[in-house]
């Protein structure tokens, strides 16, 4: 079947198998390997991307379902070598170690920040319930998301 998508501001059209999961569409078809596969059961969140501005687990969505959607992956955040404020907050707060969960964490956090105007630690912790990290113990991720929220110069994830 044929799908047309907009990913990171670029338009695409592809012929795909209906069973192709969105995460493999992004990784194998578009070569956007920043989005990871960490589990088989929508548990870990490593595959989180934004679909029409909201976080979704791209391992639990068919590429067919994304037909006509605008998507944002981790690759779109840094512009001309400058990190997005949220990425910068992850860097400044040592919120990543092996980095495998990081793109999913950042994308999930973007959605959380957008949806919680007065973001608290509890909001962040509950909001990240679907993203697993094995390295950081979450302490610094939570700090980074709070810092990133305070530092947003623009509504994150919008119109990118």
């Amino acid at each position: 079947m044929r799908v047309s998508t907009t990913v990171n501001g670029r338009s695409y059209e592809h012929e795909i198998e209906p069973r192709l999961l969105l995460v493999y569409y992004l990784r194998d078809v578009l070569g956007l390997t920043g989005t990871k596969v960490g589990c088989d059961t929508s548990s870990c969140g490593a595959c989180t991307v934004l679909v029409d501005g909201e976080s979704v687990k791209s391992c639990t969505m068919l590429a067919a379902q994304a037909d006509g959607c605008a998507m944002t992956t981790i690759e779109a955040l840094a512009v001309d070598g400058a990190l997005d404020p949220l990425q910068e907050a992850f860097h400044d707060n040592h919120a990543l170690q092996c980095g495998f969960c990081t793109s999913g964490m950042v994308m999930a956090a973007m959605s959380i920040i957008r949806e919680h105007p007065g973001l608290t630690e509890a909001d962040v912790r509950e909001g990240l319930e679907g993203n697993l990290c094995r390295c950081t113990g979450y302490h610094n991720i939570v700090k980074a998301v709070l810092a990133g929220a305070g530092r947003q110069a623009h509504p994150v994830g919008a119109a990118r």
Binding site: S42, G45, S55, K57, A108, S111, I112, E115, G130, N131
Partner: peptide, 9 residues
């Protein structure tokens, strides 16, 4: 229900 990503879909 689930997590935020699940609730978005």
């Amino acid at each position: 229900v689930g997590d935020p990503q699940v609730r978005h879909r």
